[in-house]
Design a binder for these strands. Structure first.
Lengths: 235, 235
DNA sequence: CGGACTCTTGACATCTCTCAAGTATAGTGG
DNA sequence: CCACTATACTTGAGAGATGTCAAGAGTCCG
């Protein structure tokens, strides 16, 4: 049972050669790119935009397998059909490849194949981190870790204050972290009241103190406990 | 950040050729095979026995990344050092390889390399299933899914009653599923009282009704709810 | 047989979810 | 440009699930 879900981090150099195999496509925000169960004929290189890979469970719960960014490769690890649905969160530009052609190319190119192995290994590492997160962390820790991870994606260090974009909804974040919308919102509010972050609007958050967020994410929760009770920091 | 953690499912045919590169070793139950942080010089093919891959967190919590069985390959995806500690749960027989030699061999063998890719992809699939499990499932669902997964490892179908071995402790299971010992124990007791399983001893459990367990694992909890309240089934 | 460990069970605390209301924001049509 | 509507977000109160702490029972091993 292999899935189409994980976003592989960057278009490696070897793939550049393959770009001529692909067609450039544009998707408006909120559009499905493929559906779970579709024939997995293509894979997609995300040139610009953000998308989410999700799965609907029998009982109506939704699980988000991953968010994908510029440079991610999507749909590569499907077997016959996609295991997840891919939808654009923002407007997206993607390059679409036929999976068969990519497979053929990789059979003929050991270096491409070892790139694929490397990509898949980095997926494994990402997933292991998520298993750890979902298995061991509290709601606040997960949200803190999520913010740090989003900052890290932009290449931000965890040392300096920075602004991050969260184009996905709180619901999306919740479904990704195994929490409800309300719990995500409450965690963010706590960070805000503690002065650790500043919420500019729905999609923009300033990390005033990324280092404290990192500590929160690792379980050193006690830093904020004194701030949590009531002190209001103007936003 | 790649880790040494995931157990890769089966020794593929291609690896048989490599056996002469390895040395056979024996570990008594409860022995460390390698520690997180050690130089990742070797990888291990588990010939016989069960081991656990664990990680200690800063705050003392323990996370179990995976349990490994006969036929699993361990320590392959480490970068420089092992990210997890491997310990034998039962007496174990392993074949130890130098990772360098395996890497060299794979560079010269496209078929070996594509086997490695396949193994890594199956790790990805396993991990995705776990992310789903940890993100979306209740305690009872996780325990039910765990029992089913343990049965599936032995090649048991989910149709017929069968007996499974759980050589690991309840604590181990809890650390694997993101639950406490007590919650694991309570879930098992519930299944027992509902007649879905029978607990023979610490390590042996009969799955009377694997199909119901499968349903539980997928969220159809209501089956047992009528049985849960009090009715005692002799064990 | 004794001691250590694991497992089970109970009582209670805590965390997150659920349900509900109110607010803010974005998009739409006039 | 404004009003209106739909949607997302926030916040509160209470319920439910799991964790914590504690005690007792069962099991293994020396």
């Amino acid at each position: 049972m292999s899935t189409a879900s994980t976003a592989t981090s960057q278009m490696p150099a070897q793939f550049a050669d393959l770009r001529h195999l692909g067609h450039q496509l544009f998707f408006k925000a909120g559009t499905p790119i493929f559906q779970a169960g579709d024939d997995a004929e293509h894979c997609f290189y995300l040139v610009r935009g953000v998308l989410r890979l999700s799965r609907l469970l029998l009982d109506g719960r939704r699980h988000i397998a991953d968010f994908c960014d510029e440079g991610d490769l999507v749909g590569l690890d499907a077997e016959l059909v996609y295991e997840v649905t891919a939808e654009s969160i923002t407007d997206c530009v993607v390059t679409r490849f036929r999976r068969r052609e990519l497979e053929t190319a990789s059979r003929n190119s050991p270096s491409l194949q070892s790139e694929l192995l490397e990509l898949t290994r980095s997926d494994v590492a990402r997933l292991q981190a998520r298993v750890l997160q979902l298995g061991c962390q509290t709601a606040r820790e997960r949200v803190a870790a999520f913010l740090i991870a989003m900052a890290a994606r932009r290449g931000e260090s965890t040392k300096r204050a920075c602004t991050i974009e969260l184009p996905m909804t709180r619901q999306d974040i919740g479904d990704y972290l195994g929490l409800t919308t309300e719990t995500v919102s409450r965690s963010l509010s706590e960070f805000k009241h503690a002065g650790t972050i500043r919420i500019i609007d729905r999609t923009k958050i300033v990390l005033n103190d990324p280092e404290r967020l990192s500590h929160l994410a690792e379980g050193d929760e006690d830093d904020t406990r004194d701030l949590r009770a009531g002190r209001i920091v103007r936003d």
